[in-house]
């Protein structure tokens, strides 16, 4: 064998971790310093709803569905972003907490089409989705008068790769972060406007193909509401043929360059219907480029492998 020896990373194993201990619903939980209250909840097995939080993005703490009560804090605090401090006393299921979570869900449900916000939105894998949380807190969206103002947006279909249906958008900022500093650094989309009029938008709302978008699909992958949807999924849904429960997900490695991005191939009827990447993988952190995300179409049996 050739003269190579291994060395492990200084920063990977050089540091000794300091732990902080906080009380979650009366139980002590220790987590590494710098971790959040949500991390502590996860550690304690306390299920917590989240919507704008994602492990591969910087917390923006805007949805407020994850709030908890912290002793000596005047207001509730977002568990997803608040760093745990030694000795903190946290309640996750007090009446105040339940009330705020319920109201946030009602507010969203009255303004946004949540019909496809079906993925688990909580801190444990395969956890509850928004409808489960709504039931848990007894959310009642019927009490806001006959016609509460809604997002009221048309579906934007501007290319063959993905669609944008801002009627479903909860303004969680995830797509903006994925397109921006947290991953792609393309900044094709941003939040525009203010207040209830705020929207995710390109500059002057120019169409996506005219914008800076490079179709990495990273925004689509992080969207919790299906406001952003791969065109393949959208078409199947339109045709009433999207059968998520029957789909298999296989992890493999993209072939388009030597970086080694992990892909998850979602397959229905022996056909790839969408491609994602695992959030917890050190190479991609869930993010891909246009080739990995959309370049698979040539393996489809329905698509003839054309001679070059």
């Amino acid at each position: 064998m050739t003269a190579v020896e291994s060395t492990t990373a200084k920063s990977a194993n050089g540091m000794t971790e300091t732990l902080v201990t906080i009380q979650v619903d009366g139980r002590p939980v220790s987590i590494p310093e710098g971790g959040t209250i949500l991390d502590a909840c996860s550690k304690a097995g306390v299920s917590t709803p989240t919507l704008c939080y994602a492990e591969n993005l910087t917390p923006v703490n805007v949805c407020r569905v994850c709030v908890v009560e912290v002793e000596n804090s005047r207001t509730l605090v977002p568990s997803c972003s608040r760093v745990a401090e030694e000795g903190m006393v946290v309640q996750t299921d007090s009446e105040r907490v339940r009330h705020s979570r319920k109201m946030v869900i009602e507010f969203l449900d009255t303004s946004v089409d949540l019909s496809q916000t079906t993925a688990p939105t909580s801190n444990e894998a395969g956890g509850r989705n928004l409808a489960d949380w709504a039931a848990e807190y007894g959310a009642d969206s019927s009490r806001y008068g006959p016609a509460p103002q809604t997002m009221d947006e048309e579906v934007k279909i501007q290319d063959n790769l993905y669609i944008r249906d801002y009627d479903k958008c909860v303004l969680c900022y995830k797509c903006v972060e994925a397109c921006g500093d947290d991953a792609q650094h393309t900044f094709a989309i941003a939040v525009s406007g203010r207040g209830f009029g705020a929207r995710i938008s390109t500059e002057f709302d120019v169409s996506l193909p005219d914008s800076a978008c490079v179709y990495c699909g990273n925004c689509v992958a992080v969207c919790p509401t299906n406001a952003l949807q791969f065109k393949t999924e959208f078409d199947l849904r339109e045709a009433n043929n999207w059968r998520e429960e029957e789909q298999s997900v296989t992890r493999t490695v993209c072939s388009y360059c030597g970086v080694g991005c992990n892909l998850e191939l979602h397959v229905q009827d022996d056909t790839i219907v969408k491609v994602t990447s695992p959030n917890d993988h050190s190479v991609t952190s869930g993010h891909l480029c246009i080739k990995g995300r959309f370049g698979w179409q040539y393996v489809q049996p329905t698509i003839q492998r054309k001679p070059s």
Binding site: V214, I290, G295, Y298, R305, K306
Partner: peptide, 10 residues
């Protein structure tokens, strides 16, 4: 040969 298989705006 592979990437020719999908259409895209860029």
């Amino acid at each position: 040969v592979q990437s020719g298989g999908y259409d895209n705006p860029i």
